[in-house]
């Protein structure tokens, strides 16, 4: 029987699954308030902590750049990792799983749709916080910094796919698990302070999350005087390795998830 090729279905699925996110963000603008104000408030609170401590200006920059990447971590956790869990609750997962498409394409589509919101959120944090507190950045290495940002986001989304398979094995506790992946990860990834301050062991552990090395590398490039955690080149190599490793792991885990879920009825059992 003739049917569309797997690659065609893959790309069509990405576009189609991104569509509701994209359209939804235009039709329901309430997200603008929460998605921009909430991270902005968190960033500003941390800036005031440094202000109270009379910290050098670059430390305010550390916080702002942390706030920028935090938006993507939130997108990965709430709009990607937990998404199959929400979709199962709403009954969509059955329809996704029953279609001749891949779950990876569904997840990538969701992430793509969410990037728009994350970019808006990041831009708001970067522009508003930098302007309010007069934070300057070195633009000499802006392009490499952007390149590392893109690589970091790619690695992050590959990790998000791995987490998505994990989350499907949870019932009500999925929400709490996602919640628990916030402050502990902000700590381990050095969102608000130089990664080097974590020391080799904790920093090394935190580096399993692509954000840690990506954030440190970007800070090194745009905020001169950033205490170096590891040399920039190593960080870039490590992020590329993470893209490959998490990419492969995500495929393996998604296949395992699908098989195991068919066995355990996890694709059809709804939970709230």
């Amino acid at each position: 029987m003739n049917h569309p090729s797997a690659i065609r279905i893959f790309f069509k699925t990405i576009v189609a699954r991104a569509y509701p996110r994209f359209v939804g963000s235009h039709r329901n603008l309430t997200w603008l308030v929460t998605e921009t104000l909430l991270p902005l408030i968190g960033t500003i609170a941390m800036i005031y902590v440094y202000r109270a401590l009379h910290a050098p200006a670059r430390y305010l920059g550390f916080v702002v750049l942390g706030g920028v990447l935090l938006a993507f971590w939130q997108n990965v956790i709430w709009s990607m990792a937990t998404q199959f869990f929400w979709d199962r609750g709403g009954g969509n997962l059955e329809l996704f799983a029953m279609a001749p498409t891949s779950l990876a394409a569904i997840l990538l589509g969701m992430a793509l749709g969410g990037v728009y919101m994350s970019l808006t959120r990041s831009a708001a944090v970067l522009l508003v916080a930098s302007t309010l507190f007069g934070i300057g950045y070195s633009t000499a290495s802006l392009l490499p910094a952007l390149g590392i940002f893109v690589l970091t986001v790619c690695a992050l989304y590959c990790l998000g796919m791995v987490l998505a398979s994990l989350f499907l094995f949870y019932q009500r506790e999925a929400w709490q698990l996602a919640d628990a992946l916030q402050e502990p990860i902000y700590f381990l990834s050095g969102f608000y302070f130089p990664v080097r301050s974590l020391g080799a062991v904790v920093g090394g552990l935190g580096s399993l999350i692509p954000l840690t090395l990506g954030l440190d590398a970007i800070r090194q490039l745009v905020l001169p005087g950033t205490p170096q955690f590891v040399p920039l080149a190593w960080e870039v190599v490590a992020i590329v390795v993470q893209i490959v490793a998490y990419g492969v792991l995500s495929q393996v885990s998604l296949r395992y998830l699908e098989l195991q879920s068919r066995q355990d009825a996890r694709l059809i059992l709804r939970s709230t």
Partner: peptide, 28 residues
């Protein structure tokens, strides 16, 4: 969940938030 996991979950976020501030303070 089990009571123990609930307790761990309940303190994980505030404890991490506290450690973030501790490091921020120590750095400066």
């Amino acid at each position: 969940t089990q009571p123990l996991i609930f307790v761990i979950y309940s303190v994980l976020r505030p404890l991490s938030a506290a450690f973030i501030l501790v490091i921020m303070y120590r750095v400066i």
